[in-house]
């Protein structure tokens, strides 16, 4: 762009209406707007608004660098479109097509405008192509970021959901563990159990692993660490729901669970906890 303002800027301004019509036709041909997820009017509004902000940004800051502050309305607009496409369930290539399908209409207008000067046409086509590519990449980037945010949020929610610490009795807490344990989850489980022990002043915590399918060395070590941490805080821990296969694995793995109280099921663990707290359970004869 040594010759000052790119012709692309001029074309964007002069043919805004025609570009819109051509672009919408492209989009429709490409499949966007046909499946009812985005209505035709919505697509029309989006395309029109985009061409408007694009024209404005290009006039005030040129088309060389879309990271400039003048381009922020365009970037924000694309972020918004990407976010909406994520929730509507579009794939990343479908989302990027929104921008890339502007290429053909823009090139067509450029060639009409510039005419037979091949050198200028090649230069300007290159400029336009670069611009569209940058905008497309930005769209994909923000599409991915939105997706990652969704995944991260869901992961956190799942972690919280999967760690319910329940109060079984005054001074007795239970943590029923379900599913496969990995270190991230175990750490969160551990933290929430320990915090609840402090908050409630409970002296006995029962970790029930009935719902844990397998125990490997790492999980066994995590359990052991949790038990040790609970003891350091001044409470006791019982592990219940140890199935025969898990008992076998633990011994085979050579994990030393000495000093850890284990019970076959939650009922036995509760009975022990009550006994330790000084309660006796008796049945009223009918």
């Amino acid at each position: 762009m040594a010759s000052g303002v790119s012709r692309v800027v001029e074309v964007l301004k002069k043919y805004e209406k025609e570009l819109l019509t051509d672009w919408l036709a492209e989009l429709k041909a490409g499949g966007t707007g046909n499946d009812g997820r985005v209505s035709e009017t919505e697509l029309h509004t989006q395309a029109k608004e985009f061409l408007g902000t694009l024209g404005e940004a290009s006039r005030s800051a040129g088309v060389g660098d879309i990271e400039r502050p003048e381009w922020s309305p365009v970037r924000d607009f694309l972020d918004g479109v990407s976010r909406a496409r994520v929730t509507q369930g579009y794939s990343s290539d479908q989302t990027a097509t929104f921008i890339f399908s502007l290429k053909r209409p823009l090139f067509k207008r450029l060639s009409k405008e510039i005419g037979s000067d091949a050198k200028v046409l090649a230069e300007e086509t290159w400029t336009a192509s670069e611009l569209i590519d940058k905008l497309g990449l930005h769209t994909i980037k923000s599409f991915q970021k939105t997706r990652e945010d969704v995944i991260n949020r869901q992961q956190e929610e799942m972690l919280e959901l999967s760690t319910p610490v329940v109060k079984l009795w005054d001074g007795v807490l239970a943590l029923p563990m379900i599913g496969t344990l990995d270190s991230a989850r175990t750490q969160i489980v551990m933290e929430s159990l320990l915090q609840r022990i402090v908050d409630t002043g409970s002296e006995i915590a029962i970790i029930d692993i009935t719902g844990v399918p397998t125990v490997d060395t790492l999980v066994a070590q995590h359990l052991l660490k949790t038990v040790t941490a609970i003891r350091l805080m001044g409470a006791d821990c019982i592990i219940s729901g140890v199935r025969p296969q898990i008992a076998q694995t633990i011994v085979h793995l050579g994990v030393d669970l000495q000093g850890v109280i284990t019970k076959a099921n939650l009922a036995d663990a509760l009975a022990l906890a009550l006994k330790r707290s000084g309660y006796t359970v008796t049945r009223n004869k009918a």
């Binding site: 551990m190 660490k225 805080m233």
Partner: peptide, 14 residues
């Protein structure tokens, strides 16, 4: 020894 905080206990074990 009384009142060890959870974060302290976890760290000490680690």
């Amino acid at each position: 020894v009384v009142g060890m905080q959870p974060a302290v206990a976890i760290t000490l074990v680690e």
